[in-house]
């Protein structure tokens, strides 16, 4: 059974949410503040973390920073509707996706499933399969990435996006397709998630010999991983 860690300060809400998610066949543990949550992540491993942004003491963003220091576990943030700054800051710090709060728990469970499905290595992939694009090497079975033989640490969403681009290297992939395949949901209006994720991938990968970034934005069309 897959394990979910819920970090939210609203005790009653967490109780109900726990009950709901457990009914969907997950094992759920809860933490009522960021510090406790980050501590639990150190002690045991979880498949996915659901993190509320608005919390007293260590707030969601700070908690995310603390988690990302030693873990690449997928993180879904619960953000207030319409609060774009929190979303972008969260995505920049390596959150995988966000769900507005309040929203239906069904939506949250769907997002959890979408991310977990992606993260799980498919058994059909041959362990030695390798995608190489220039200096970039990707092992889909282990979800490992290397640039110039240096290993690159990516969050799971960043990895998924890079894998899609690498499989279509040289071609333009639209933002809509990227969102659908990597996040498991259609792109919402004014949604900047994909841009934020890709900009953080760019920072983690090196430059091409001619000084360009290997991932190019194609205005109004999407993104492209350069072949050479």
């Amino acid at each position: 059974m897959q394990t979910v860690l819920l970090i939210d300060d609203d005790i009653e809400l967490v109780e109900m949410l726990k009950e709901y998610i457990e009914q969907e066949n997950f094992s759920v543990q809860v933490a009522h503040d960021g510090m406790a949550g980050a501590q639990m992540l150190l002690e045991q491993s979880f498949d996915i973390v659901v993190l509320d942004v608005m919390m007293p003491r260590l707030n969601g963003i700070e908690t995310l920073k603390a988690i990302r220091q030693h873990s690449n576990v997928p993180v879904i943030m619960l953000t207030a509707k319409g609060d774009n700054t929190d979303r972008i800051v969260g995505l920049e710090l390596g959150a995988d996706d966000y769900v507005p709060k309040p929203s239906s728990p069904r939506e949250l469970v769907a997002r959890i499933r979408a991310i977990l499905r992606r993260v799980q290595p498919l058994e059909t992939i041959n362990v030695s399969t390798k995608i190489t694009v220039g200096a970039l090497c990707i092992w889909p079975a282990q979800r490992l990435v290397e640039w110039d033989s240096q290993s690159v640490i990516l969050t799971s969403t960043e990895y998924s996006l890079l894998e899609i681009l690498a499989k279509n290297a040289g071609q333009i992939v639209s933002k809509q397709d990227l969102s659908q395949q990597a996040l498991g949901r259609p792109l919402a209006r004014f949604d900047r998630s994909i841009d934020v994720h890709l900009s953080s991938i760019r920072h983690k990968l090196g430059l091409l010999p001619d000084g360009r970034h290997c991932i190019q934005t194609v205005f109004r069309s999407g993104y492209q991983l350069l072949k050479s």
Partner: peptide, 13 residues
Amino acid sequence: RSPLARLQIAVGL
């Protein structure tokens, strides 16, 4: 929003 979030989850349950 907090009671609304709880309401949504209660409806979901």
